[in-house]
């Protein structure tokens, strides 16, 4: 085994393979984050249930009840909950990944490992919350007497993969910027909030009528729409839209890796 240390050149794909060698550390990072996430909280992991649940209740009261938001013929609470489930996975992953380098600077300045592990593991951690909150969806669907479309559920891993690509990709770009410009910390919550309104979480994209194509550029649109079709039925999965989401997600991921790798060399010097 020989290691050669040289001035960092531009990005090479071969280095991505290194992640595989470090998979055990990836597991440990994720394991640690899950362990400490809800330490010293009174209700612990229940937070993963409360957040989407309370948000769903409030949205149902104000948007569903008072504003009479259309929901494609599905009871508004489960309509919005499916959207929230994926949305919260996306937004928590994005902000977790953006802070992953700065939050672990003590480790980054002392030990070598592929830095890509940090945004990836912080996103993987969010799966736990996602699966716990999914349990709540099952209860809601039983309550409303909605049988899931079992064949449709097979599409879920694909949807999660696309969401994963989008949030890790975006997270890598933001994490790299965050190392140099801490503005990210302040801009991101605002950015995420804004994104919520251009994603059909609270409303169906049908309310934009002929302008609904605008939303297609947002990769989360295809994912959330496909999730609703698959889980709740009603309309068939819009594969074109989902393909666009997948392509955009992949592009964000690629750009993320390249940006991240090209700025990685500075991390230890300036965090």
């Amino acid at each position: 085994m020989e290691i050669i240390i040289k001035p960092k050149k531009k990005f090479s794909w071969r280095e991505i393979a290194e992640i595989w060698d470090y998979r055990e550390l990836l597991y440990f990072f994720t394991w640690r984050d899950i362990k400490i996430r809800y330490k010293q909280t009174a209700i612990g992991i229940l937070w993963a249930l409360f957040q989407p649940f309370i948000t769903m209740v409030i949205f149902s009261i104000f948007f569903g009840n008072f504003a009479k938001m259309p929901s494609d013929g599905i009871p508004y609470p489960i309509f919005v909950f499916v959207g929230l489930l994926l949305w919260q996975f996306f937004s928590a992953s994005l902000s977790g990944a953006s802070n992953s380098l700065v939050g672990n600077q003590g480790i980054i300045t002392k030990v070598y490992f592929p830095r890509l592990l940090m945004p990836i593991s912080s996103t993987v951690t969010q799966f736990v919350d996602f699966f716990i909150a999914s349990g709540m969806l099952v209860i809601l669907m039983i309550y409303y007497g909605y049988l899931p479309n079992l064949a449709g559920l097979l599409i879920l891993p694909l949807l999660l993969l696309i969401t994963f690509l989008i949030s890790v990709g975006g997270g890598m770009i933001l994490a790299a910027i965050n190392v140099k410009y801490r503005d990210v910390r302040y801009a991101l919550p605002f950015f995420i909030q804004t994104l919520l309104f251009v994603t059909p979480v609270i409303y169906p994209s049908s309310i934009l009528h002929k302008y609904s194509w605008i939303l297609a550029a947002n990769p989360m649109t295809g994912v959330i729409k496909a999730a609703r079709s698959a889980i709740l039925g009603g309309s068939p999965v819009n594969w074109t839209l989902l393909a666009i989401s997948g392509a955009v997600g992949m592009a964000i991921f690629m750009v993320g890796i390249v940006v991240f790798r090209n700025t990685e060399k500075y991390f230890a010097d300036i965090v």
């Binding site: 085994m1 290691i3 040289k6 001035p7 960092k8 002392k110 030990v111 070598y112 230890a268």
Partner: peptide, 21 residues
């Protein structure tokens, strides 16, 4: 630099084994 935390600006290092820092 030996621990690969930060890269050198110039030059090269060859390490023929598992290095822990």
């Amino acid at each position: 630099i030996l621990s690969r935390i930060t890269p050198p600006t110039k030059g090269e290092i060859r390490i023929g084994g598992k290095l822990a820092s």
